[in-house]
Design a protein around this nucleic acid. Structure first.
Lengths: 353, 353
DNA sequence: ATGAAAGCGCTAACAC
DNA sequence: GTGTTAGCGCTTTCAT
């Protein structure tokens, strides 16, 4: 009686405060226990009679009852959410990653909490911890610059971490998937060399990004093996942005530098280069060849379409999610750190070979 | 004693199961009550002595204790999260919306749960309900096609909803912000007419999208007021995509149709148009003028840069978040449904007037 | 087949 | 200042 009184009071309070119905409400309405409602909600085949089940289901419909995911999480101590941390959602590189992770998660009935780090290691650390506070089941981290000191320390929080696009610092994540930047840059550069380009310029983002360092090495390796000298003025680093590409290309033109080909460390940079060149009347690929990196969606939207090093980002995102769940349930194998080789995708910014 | 025994046992279990420390652990270690730990954690100035506070803070540091957001949510019955539902994260229109919402949320210490509806009203409804299940404080919905029947019904869940980009169906959201599509289309079309274009073609997405209908009306209104006739073959609807723009423009060229200007209902379409035209040697804006819509980041990355109808998406996203919180705490005023007028941004795809 | 009761980790009165 | 005691809405033994 005491119980049912409480419930009635609650039901009243609910009406005025417009609070959602709870399991107790359904239980009371059906004159069964919460345990039974719980069994029905979770579709337990065993342990509940047909008649009872129907009655409960009816009440659930009627009350429009929806179980409180939070309460469930606190009871089971696992919440159906995963965090995704990226540098900047408005950077054209990430939409497909976001989509890939989001969809893969949803297929498993999970939610995605998205946050932008702004490429700030400190902010990234804060976000990671706040994800831990949310008790996400794991987090997927996209980042070029991280506070590895923090990442090592982060292990203590015991929240699975899988990295996308960080081939270095493998020890700091439980699993990772990334493109082979060295190889990719090497392939692109070789292609440019074999195409007979006497003057190749390489433009990329900040060298502190692990990916940039690797691409730089790949570029240098390809040049070296061809016996080419690389002057300090053949390499331009800066922002990983469209503007950077545009500015460097403009500068090159203004300085009247002999340039026959440009290898850009990202399609964003490459797109900036293409616009700078075409807007000044330089013909691509006839006068200058351009190769980008990543094959983001933008690379098909510029004219001519970018020849670029393709990486299967959507698949990589899905695979990252797979791996995250594998580490969660301890089924992850030895190959926890995957590297995929970028593939040269020839389009319009290079001449036919 | 019983209590402290339980705690000790728990502390042991924790070690082996690697479960995070709880408030009880800290309390036990400091020989204070959970209430005190809670007070310290929440920075309550009153109610805790200096010495105690320091002791507790030290233990928190030492144990690396982090409060469980979920538990807190269940206790306070409010969770620091907001849902954002968009049609497709990989569509270049959304990155800046995502970023805007995410950042605005983070400034308030909130998390964003992101989900893609794929423009499927049914899926959208499911997502909305799953957000309710998560007990988000509210949801921000970006959508052109919704199940208005469901939306009306959704009110019963009592979870605040603010819409971005839906000027119609105002009754279904607690607040909304969107661009004035009619006016925008009208301005663009007038500009094209005043520029002396004899043959204006209008390309847009599916007419069942509320925004498309409005733009269509704006286009027609502008044509009508100029005494122009609009043949059925002057309007092309289809996907809201780059490909659609590309295909229609290609078709136009193949059919050798007299076309002097194209008004595209989105920059994505406009970008496709520009590529189709330039790749076939049509000069923009000399031979054909093009005006897009939205001013997404892509519009600056094509050559020539797109003349377009600018809308302040980042601000709109931030404003949507503001409004969401206003409805949450009941402080929202009368102007809950904001419409912003797009502004003509003249760039390279139109001739100087 | 069903119910009672004990948590999950926290907050929030209300005592003392 | 600090502790006690109820919950929050659910799951999960363990009885019956």
């Amino acid at each position: 009686m005491a119980l049912s009184n409480r419930l009635l009071n609650r039901a009243h309070a609910r009406q005025t405060a417009m609070k959602p119905y709870t399991m107790a409400d359904i239980a009371a309405a059906c004159k069964v226990s919460k345990a039974t409602v719980s069994r029905v909600m979770n579709g337990k085949a065993e342990g509940v009679g047909d008649e009872t089940r129907r009655r409960v289901q009816k009440a659930i419909k009627q009350f429009n009852y929806r179980p409180n995911t939070i309460a469930r999480s606190i009871a089971t101590s696992k919440s159906p959410t995963v965090g995704l941390i990226i540098p900047d959602a408005s950077n054209l590189f990430y939409p497909v990653i976001i989509k890939g992770v989001c969809d893969a998660l949803e297929r498993r009935g999970y939610h995605m909490i998205l946050a932008n780090s702004g490429s700030d290691p400190k902010k990234e650390a804060e976000l990671l911890v706040s994800m831990v506070d949310m008790r996400v089941e794991g987090v997927i981290l996209c980042s070029g610059v991280s506070n590895t000191r923090f990442l090592a320390d982060y292990k203590k929080y015991n929240t699975p971490l899988v990295a996308i696009g960080r081939s270095t610092d493998i020890d700091y994540s439980d699993a990772s998937i990334s493109g082979n930047n060295f190889t990719g840059a090497q392939i692109a550069t070789r292609y440019l060399i074999e195409g007979g380009n006497p003057h190749i310029v390489y433009i990329d983002g900040h060298p502190e990004y692990s990916g940039v360092m690797q691409k730089r090495e790949g570029f240098l390796a390809a040049m070296r093996e061809a016996g080419r000298e690389v002057g300090a003025d053949a390499i331009f680093t800066g922002e990983h942005s469209y503007e950077h590409g545009f500015q460097v290309a403009s500068l090159l033109l203004e300085q009247n530098r002999p340039v026959s080909a440009i290898f850009a460390g990202s399609d964003l940079i490459a797109a900036g280069v293409v616009q700078a060149l075409t807007s000044r009347g330089v013909r691509i690929p006839d006068d200058i060849e351009v190769i980008g990196f990543d094959n983001i969606i933008l690379s098909e939207m510029v004219e001519p379409r970018l020849t670029t090093m393709h990486k299967p980002h959507e698949d990589m995102a899905a695979r990252a999610v797979d791996m995250l769940f594998e580490v969660v349930n301890g089924s992850i194998g030895e190959l926890r750190h995957i590297t995929v080789d970028p593939r040269l995708l020839v389009r319009g910014t290079t001449r036919p070979r």
